[in-house]
Amino acid sequence: MKYVDTKIVFQELPNEITLAINISGCPCACAGCHSSYLSQDIGKLLTQEALEQLICQNRGITAISFMGGDANPKYINILAQYLRFNHSNLKVGWYSGRDKLPMEIDPNNFDYIKLGPYISNKGPLNNPNTNQRLYRVVREEDETAFLDITYLFYKNQYNNK
Score class of each variant (00 low, 15 high):
H87N: 15
G60Y: 08
V4S: 13
E141I: 09
Y151M: 05
G97C: 11
V138N: 11
A145Y: 08
N121Q: 09
A20I: 01
A71G: 12
E140V: 11
N156H: 13
Y154P: 01
N109P: 02
A80Q: 04
D5L: 12
L38M: 10
R59Q: 15
V137H: 00
P128R: 08
C56P: 03
E143M: 10
Y112V: 02
R139A: 08
A29Q: 11
D5Q: 11
R136T: 01
Q53R: 14
S88G: 12
R59P: 06
N89S: 15
S35L: 05
Y112A: 01
L83Q: 06
G60M: 10
N159P: 00
G97V: 03
F66C: 00
T47W: 08
Y158D: 13
V138Q: 11
S65W: 01
S24A: 15
E52H: 10
Y82D: 05
Y3Q: 04
Y95K: 08
N22D: 14
T150G: 08
S65C: 15
E49L: 09
Y118R: 05
M103E: 12
R139Y: 02
G43Y: 06
N89C: 13
I113D: 00
S24I: 06
I8V: 13
E141V: 10
G68K: 01
E52K: 14
W94Y: 13
M1F: 10
E104P: 01
L19W: 04
L46Y: 05
I105G: 02
C28M: 13
E141Q: 14
D106P: 00
R139F: 02
N77M: 00
S88T: 14
V9L: 08
K114Q: 09
L54K: 12
